[in-house]
Design a protein around this nucleic acid. Structure first.
Lengths: 180, 180
DNA sequence: ACCTGAACACCGTTCAAGT
DNA sequence: ACCTGAACACCGTTCAAGT
């Protein structure tokens, strides 16, 4: 047995850190801890991650890919609800993705993963609104802010019903309801 | 001279930490560092803050009070722009206030300061919409999400013009434009 | 290439002690 | 009450060394 890590130490570290993330929160993430849990010396992770932030960036990238898959499954107006649902189901992951702990400039793969998810939101607006970019920015802001504020505990409610009501209270002025 | 700290060590620590916050970011905040800069032993801060999180909570509370003042100055529809402006002018403070680093449950003064600011946003909707709470939640989500996404660098633009265009793209369906 | 142990400079936090 | 120094258990990161 004695889990050897051949080429997959990187994967093992991500698995260990990902587990710890949702259970203990971002602050509990450490390179030394991940190494310990993967059964290697505290120094081995540096072969795969330049520093702690690189580990966080990799975990965040996983999150963006997962979010993209969830948005893919939803269509049109349900995408907003899917976005909020993702945040509520993976609170720590969501915070990691959007908490400003990672400098996007230094991690191009992360920026790519993020804007890919944004593109999907934007696509939902293409073709039927005048200024799709602006409408998409507003829609993203809405769902993103709602997610964050719920996670931070600033609303009394956090059920699906509440989310739908808030999202339903908004119309996009540049949208089709104007030319209709 | 030799700055004695009589009763104001707390204030001195907050001043030192606040300075460091905007310059170096949240991760650079430490009780030991604040003590060093205030000229006391690394242990003195514990007389005024139970732990590191209590220091962060106090800094965040300052931020909520400041945000409240800015919202006070603005009226009605300008409050949204004022909110985003506050975030862009105090990025690290804003992240501290909303980054999920502080457990609101353990710091009631912080929760109070936060919901006081929210009340101001909500007041802007009272009396002229059917469901003021829902509309206010949507409006807060919109400006909050926009602020965060701009800070995280997810939009190419971040000028006032862009902010106005995004905020202007939204109508609140429960608002007066329906019954009008 | 991949992994190791030793070392350095930082933390938060606790404790016993001083005034 | 307020402050101190010593101590403990953690970090991230670097370095010289092993296979």
């Amino acid at each position: 047995m004695s889990t050897y890590h051949h080429g997959d130490l990187r994967a093992a570290l991500l698995r260990a850190a990902g587990k710890r993330l949702e259970k203990q929160g971002i602050a509990a993430l450490s390179l030394r801890g991940a190494a310990r849990r993967a059964g290697v010396s505290h120094n081995a992770p540096y072969r795969h991650f330049a520093d702690r932030e690189a580990l966080l960036a990799a975990l965040a990238a996983e999150g963006f890919h997962l979010l993209g898959q969830e948005l893919d499954k939803a269509s049109g107006r349900e995408m907003g609800e899917a976005y909020v649902r993702f945040a509520l189901q993976h609170p720590q992951r969501f915070r990691l993705m959007f908490g400003g702990r990672i400098a996007l400039d230094k991690h191009p793969q992360l920026r790519a993963a993020a804007s890919s998810a944004f593109d999907q939101l934007q696509a939902a607006f293409s073709g039927y609104v005048l200024d799709a970019r602006t409408a998409a920015a507003a829609a993203w802001s809405l769902v993103h802010g709602l997610s964050h504020l719920i996670l931070d505990g600033h609303f009394e409610q956090r059920d699906e019903e509440f989310v739908k009501r808030v999202l339903g209270a908004v119309r996009f002025a540049v949208g089709p309801q104007r030319s209709a």
